[in-house]
Simulated assay, not measured.
Amino acid sequence: MHLTLYDLYQKMLNTMGPTHWWPAETKEQIIIEAILIQNTTEKNALSASQVLQEKNHYDFKKIAELPQDELEEWIRPAGFMKNKSKVIQTIAQWYLEHQKKPDKIIRRYGKNLRQELLSLHGVGQETADVLLVYIFDQPQFISDKYARTLFTQLGIEDLTDYKSLAQRLSVLPDPFTFQDAQEFHGLIDEFGKKYLRPPQKFESSFLAGDQLVL
């Protein structure tokens, strides 16, 4: 069956049910976990996140003022502690400078917000898109590895890296809302854990035989 992007989203949502992703109590928690998840497993990222929650409840002011070596120890379970601690403190300081007000940040940067995020130390394309979706409520598409693998299985070719898909699909088209963007990312990742490890398991999924039309 040929599916539009929105058809695909609706089929996944109706079959799998909502994921309510990103599960977090605050925007600060999401920002930190978006950094911790880089180049590690979800389990390791959540383990490091829990340490931060227990130590200071994701208080950005305290995190920004914390000695870097101490923060490195807190987030050790997520790996790459030196770089991730610097990224966390950079974004924490930037968010504080903007009074932790996403609406104000959107008004200030407008369409240049993604570029502003990419200018921050350690923020790559995937992290920037995650922040756009979950912090700034934008209908952005997150072209992560699971998305690229899924779309490849659905007949989209030449998805070699993040940029290869992001160039073709950045902002989700109407009628997608930012809530849909949040849910779509969660669905794709949950689908990936079940049916794309290894990719051959896709043939046993409810999407086997479908073709995506971008």
Rank of each mutant, 00 (worst) to 15 (best):
K62G: 12
A208I: 04
P173I: 04
I156N: 05
Q93I: 00
L52D: 08
N83G: 09
S204T: 11
D180I: 10
Y9W: 00
R168V: 04
K84P: 08
K201W: 12
L66A: 10
Q153R: 06
T160G: 07
D161M: 04
D174C: 05
F176W: 01
E116V: 05
S170A: 01
Q115S: 09
A34K: 12
Q125V: 09
E97G: 08
T19V: 14
L207N: 02
K82C: 06
I88N: 13
E116Y: 03
Y146V: 01
A92G: 09
Q167N: 07
E183V: 01
L196D: 12
Q38D: 14
I30D: 12
Y95S: 08
K201C: 03
S49W: 12
R148H: 03
K84C: 08
D210K: 00
T19I: 08
F206N: 08
K194F: 09
E203Q: 11
S143F: 01
Q68P: 07
E157C: 09
P77E: 07
P77H: 13
Y134P: 02
D144Q: 05
I106A: 10
T177W: 03
A45G: 15
Q200I: 05
L196W: 13
L154G: 04
L71Q: 14
K101R: 15
Q211R: 00
T127K: 15
R107E: 14
L118C: 03
Q153S: 08
S204M: 10
G124N: 15
D59V: 07
K82A: 11
A64Q: 15
S164R: 04
R114S: 05
E72H: 00
S170C: 05
Q138L: 03
I63P: 13
P198N: 07
S85W: 01
I106Y: 15
D129Q: 15
I142T: 01
K55G: 03
A181R: 08
L96M: 15
M16T: 15
F80G: 07
E157T: 11
M81F: 12
T4R: 00
H2E: 05
F60K: 14
L131V: 10
V130D: 15
L13A: 07
E157F: 02
Q138I: 07
L150P: 06
L212I: 03
M12R: 10
L207S: 02
Q115G: 05
L8K: 06
L154P: 02
K194Y: 13
L13T: 06
T152G: 06
I37A: 13
K145F: 04
N112A: 10
K104T: 10
L165Y: 01
H121S: 13
R76V: 06
I106T: 12
K11E: 02
G110R: 09
Q167D: 00
I32V: 15
A45K: 09
M16K: 14
Y134A: 05
